[in-house]
Amino acid sequence: MKVCVLAGDGIGPEIVAEAVRVLEALRTDGLKIELEPALLGGCAVDAAGSAYPEATQKLAREADAVLLGAVGGPQWDNNPRPLRPERGLLAIRKDLNLFANLRPAILYPELANASTLKPEVVSGLDILIVRELTGDIYFGEPRGVENREVDGRSQRVGWNTMIYSESEIRRIGKVAFEAARKRNRRVCSVDKMNVLETTQLWRDVMIELSKDYPDVELSHMLVDNAAMQLVKAPKQFDVMVTGNMFGDILSDEASMLTGSIGMLPSASLDASNKGLYEPSHGSAPDIAGKGVANPLATILSAAMMLRYSFGNEAAAQRVESAVKKVLALGLRTGDIWEEGCKRVGTREMGDAVLAAL
């Protein structure tokens, strides 16, 4: 299996290096995997004048999966929009038709005190957020900024278009219902149907689709209420499915229930389970190069890659078990450290996971 490795910007190279070491260890044990690096994001802009260069496009299309660190940083904030690092991330998702983003929010028992919520509220938390990734207001046309006559004077006006087709909603719904069948058989669809016609269609299609899954319970929740319920009673959820913009916000909110976004992996899949795997966190430029970033989310993303794109459940569980063992030993990077635990850096955490493997 061929993996395109995109270290990206900020802490990306540091955390990806540890995930690559894990995959290389598994390869030594017989896993048939080939790793090939390429550029995406700000580093690609600097080196090739594009956030998603042609060489990266070619490799990503040929690969069976993509492992990504993170993109972005303040040094590119003033670039023209087409040369912003984030455009590379949007472009590769669109290019590979990665329409389904899976973000688990799992609270490891050893990290119960890391959450800002009371342990009884989050203990045993295990949510899967399924976010549609290639439609919605992020990609809708028309869009832009121009001068218009408003209130009797010329001023700048910006606009974006929220748009979803029935087929886009149906295919992400299927991903959510299929995932729920392997979990606790409950899907909560999140929308804003009381205001937005786009999401009224979303709800209508989800209701129609639910007839194909009589063994899965479907519920609905408005996005503002869902945001509140995630911090009030998060364990009521099993699988949450929602659109691109709402999913972007809710998945980050859910990640913090676990104490640190540095612990949470994600997968973005196409219809054939080819995927891009990345930690849920960003490039954290403030700690880049300091060797203190938490690599566990990236390592767990590699485990998701083994599960979803390679169909190797045994290898995925082996990696996840190694992470659990390291946490049980009391090793912590700074973002999850607490009194009585041993603070370690990025490389040391990677060493510990390899030892546990």
Rank of each mutant, 00 (worst) to 15 (best):
N79E: 01
Q75T: 15
A91R: 03
R61G: 11
G73M: 09
N101P: 15
A51G: 08
V45F: 03
P82F: 07
R93M: 08
L40P: 06
D95R: 03
L40G: 02
R27Y: 06
G72Y: 08
A100C: 04
N97C: 13
L31M: 08
A91E: 03
Y52K: 03
G49V: 07
N101G: 13
P82S: 12
D64T: 03
L68S: 11
A65I: 09
L39Y: 02
V71N: 03
L102W: 06
A51W: 00
V71A: 06
G73S: 01
Q57M: 11
Q75S: 10
A38R: 10
P109W: 04
D46V: 02
Q75G: 05
E34F: 08
I92S: 09
A38E: 05
A91D: 14
L39C: 15
A105E: 05
E34D: 11
E36M: 08
P109L: 08
V45C: 02
I92K: 07
P85N: 11
Q57W: 11
A55G: 15
Q57K: 14
N79W: 06
L59A: 01
L26P: 13
T56E: 09
N97H: 11
G49T: 06
P37C: 09
G69T: 13
L96I: 01
P80E: 11
G30V: 15
G73N: 06
P53S: 00
A105W: 00
D95F: 10
W76V: 12
V71E: 03
A48D: 13
A91I: 13
G49I: 09
R103H: 02
P104L: 00
Q57G: 11
V66A: 03
D64K: 04
D64R: 02
A55R: 10
P37E: 09
R27A: 14
W76H: 08
K32W: 15
D77A: 15
L35Q: 05
A105V: 02
R27N: 07
L90G: 05
R93Y: 06
I106R: 00
A44C: 08
L68G: 03
K58V: 13
E36V: 02
T56H: 13
V71I: 07
L102H: 07
L96S: 01
A60V: 00
D46Q: 02
G73C: 05
A25C: 12
L90I: 07
G49D: 01
T56A: 10
L89K: 00
R84Y: 15
P104N: 01
